[in-house]
């Protein structure tokens, strides 16, 4: 396939990328460079005077951030919350995808279910935080009232008290908000699979479990990788729910990296310098993690996937020919 792309078409690659590049230069690059540079300066406070690059000790801000216990804690919190939310989220999304795309047992009303499951993603984080704050309210709230009525707790649980509890609630909210999105993503990946592949599997007598694991899953690997990477990035950038529900509670248990950055930059003294350093460090962490995911998963799978598709297509065609 690739050899059909003639070299003469290459220039269109550049031409079609021009709008993106222009918009990127104008609207993204400046703030990014700005942030990077700030990380090496002493830009602090409301009306900073004598702002300059710290030539004597250029990595002063970075060293400060790395030494901060809170930064380390916010990093672990972020990763733990992300894992706590991502694993069940992906699990449920895959399960629903399997159910909804199964060609034999057509789930009635699945259109409605699909629409409804994505709905939590429509509400603003502010609303979600208020609502869940009330639902998990202490000493009185629906969850606690139920627990007390059932005799499971005498006084109710203060969900904002212990670090692990608050993480669980934040992860639950994230899970609830995003499993529908992930499902929509995965389903749209499945829709993109050539139906002939499934027909071939049917003819081979594969049952639905086999079809799902051996055909559907490998074919949506690229979309899964996309979901994984964007979820990782989104997860490490997690801010709305932690800041609205957890930032000042649970003994810093729900304090994420972005909470740290926000506190530095928009506290009473506006430490833009350490905030910038922290975001650069966070950026490096995300790059490292994503690249690991990316290169480990992508290269092998793409090759495998292509081979698989070709084989199946060949089989399908040869069968049709019969």
């Amino acid at each position: 396939m690739r050899n059909k792309k003639l070299v003469s078409y290459g220039k269109f690659g550049y031409i079609f990328s021009i709008p993106f590049i222009l918009a990127f230069l104008v609207f993204s690059l400046y703030p990014i460079v700005y942030t990077l540079v700030i990380g090496f300066t002493n830009l602090e406070g409301l009306n900073p005077k004598d702002v300059h690059i710290l030539w004597d000790n250029p990595f002063k801000n970075f060293a400060w951030v790395l030494k901060s216990k809170l930064f380390k804690k916010s990093f672990t919190n972020t990763v733990v919350i992300w894992i706590m939310n991502f694993i069940p989220q992906m699990g449920l999304a895959l399960l629903l995808t399997a159910w909804f795309t199964d060609r034999r047992s057509k789930v009635k009303g699945q259109g409605l279910f699909k629409i409804l499951f994505y709905m939590p993603n429509i509400i603003t984080a502010a609303t979600v935080a208020i609502l869940f704050g009330q639902i998990f309210g202490f000493p009185s709230g629906p969850v606690n009232a139920t627990l007390i009525k059932l005799g499971l707790s005498k006084e109710g649980f203060d969900f904002q008290l212990k670090p692990m509890r608050i993480k669980a609630v934040v992860a639950f909210i994230q899970f609830w908000q995003w499993y529908g999105y992930t499902m929509v993503m995965l389903i749209s990946g499945v829709i993109g699979i050539n139906p002939e592949i499934f027909e071939a599997a049917d003819l081979d007598g594969a049952n639905r479990v086999q079809t799902f694991f051996l055909i559907t899953l490998p074919c949506i690997r690229t979309i899964m990788l996309y979901v994984l990477v964007t979820s990782l990035i989104g997860g490490l950038n997690m801010f709305d729910i932690p800041s609205l529900y957890a930032m000042n509670h649970g003994d810093n248990g729900g304090y994420t990296l972005n909470c740290f950055i926000k506190d530095q930059a928009f506290g009473p003294d506006n430490f833009y310098d350490t905030a910038a350093a922290a975001s650069v460090l966070m950026f490096l962490v995300i790059v490292a993690l994503s690249l690991v995911l990316f290169f480990i998963m992508r290269d092998k799978d793409e090759a495998k996937l292509k081979k698989l598709k070709k084989q199946q297509l060949k089989m399908a065609r040869s069968r049709k020919a019969y």
Partner: peptide, 23 residues
């Protein structure tokens, strides 16, 4: 105290002179 936090339903319940849900 009733172990409430400000600006939560349990706090407002005390203004109304009511018990907390389930208690």
């Amino acid at each position: 105290s009733n172990k409430t936090a400000d600006w939560t339903p349990a706090w407002y319940a005390d203004m109304k002179g009511a018990s907390q849900e389930g208690k």
